[in-house]
């Protein structure tokens, strides 16, 4: 698919952030996110790339108003454009409305999913908890049916619903996390390093699942990782973050073929090519040096 086609397909925005700055109020204060402006379109996968400490996780938490002191959003507006046409000003939501907003409109898959399930509750109880809290009208049998349906959706045998987290493999736990994030049919999913701790083959399975679900359910994804090659492979657009700022934003293709910012170039060159030539990688030239000396 070419770039204009992509923008036609992802025309309508679902989440808009304008001039967002987030500060950690410690001494001295740390500007974790600086003046970030970002539009997420319906059904789009937006990759957020950057290294540790660049503010990508802080930004993601900010978009969902999950910041905890000392982190504080100092400026900017975040607007969620609901499916039915309402615009929701995320920054000014009251506590009660925020609770209703979170997870049902924008859900998150957290970093380190191995540890973000409750170890003393089985999968059924944890899925049930989401539905009971946000869908008080649902009957017990309906919640169970929905929970099983969700597991099936993410490729986990529904009969594993009574399993505890430690009885599941890392990949299955991550799938359960995605099932929980899908429970309320959100329009945006923020995924913070969802596959980093997993083996490559398992990781590929999860990525495929996410892509498949996106096609079927039409949610937009903000996919956060430092793994730029992976982002280029799966994203529609990519934003590169450095020290709290978005230094480059473009389609995956343009970021890969024609990076503009020095830092993007450096990040790209940090990943030696799997199948291509050896490029500037030192060892290639080193062999010649050895012969010469």
């Amino acid at each position: 698919m070419t770039a204009p086609e992509a923008s036609a397909r992802f025309g309508e925005p679902v989440l808009t952030a304008r001039g967002v700055s987030i500060e950690y109020e410690v001494d001295p204060p740390v500007q974790a996110v600086r003046d970030v402006t970002l539009t997420l379109h319906r059904g789009e996968i937006l990759g957020l790339a950057g290294e540790s400490g660049c503010g990508k996780t802080t930004l993601a938490y900010g978009l969902n108003r999950l910041l905890k002191p000392p982190a504080l959003q100092t400026s900017g507006e975040i607007v969620f454009h609901d499916r039915d046409g309402d615009d929701i000003d995320v920054v000014s939501l009251s506590d009660e409305r925020l609770r209703a907003f979170r997870w049902s409109k924008v859900s998150m898959v957290f970093q380190g999913a191995m540890n973000s399930l409750n170890p003393v509750l089985n999968v059924r109880a944890q899925l049930d908890d989401v539905l009971r809290t946000h869908r008080p009208g649902m009957k017990k049998a309906e919640r169970l049916a929905r929970s099983r349906e969700l597991l099936e959706l993410v490729g986990v045998d529904p009969d594993r619903i009574s399993s505890f987290p430690h009885e599941l493999s890392g990949g299955m736990r991550q799938r359960v996390m995605i099932a929980m994030a899908l429970a309320l049919d959100p329009q945006v999913m923020i995924m913070d390093e969802p596959t980093t701790a997993l083996d490559v083959v398992v990781q590929r399975g999860i990525i495929r699942e996410i892509m498949r679900l996106r096609e079927r359910l039409g949610f937009a994804v903000i996919f956060i990782t430092h793994d730029l090659p992976l982002l280029i492979e799966i994203s529609d657009r990519i934003a590169v973050m450095l020290r709290g700022e978005i230094v480059e934003l473009g389609t995956a293709e343009s970021v890969y073929r024609d990076p503009q910012h020095e830092y993007t170039k450096r990040l790209l060159s940090s990943f030696p090519s799997l199948r291509g030539d050896r490029g500037g990688f030192l060892r290639g030239t080193g062999a010649n040096q050895e012969v010469a000396s």
Binding site: M1, I45, V201, R208, M211, E233, E253, Y256, L274
Partner: peptide, 15 residues
């Protein structure tokens, strides 16, 4: 399973 930027968009088209 290894990420390969050369294949960008391929997985999307496949699914």
């Amino acid at each position: 399973a290894a990420a390969d930027p050369e294949r960008h968009g391929a997985l999307r088209d496949e699914v």
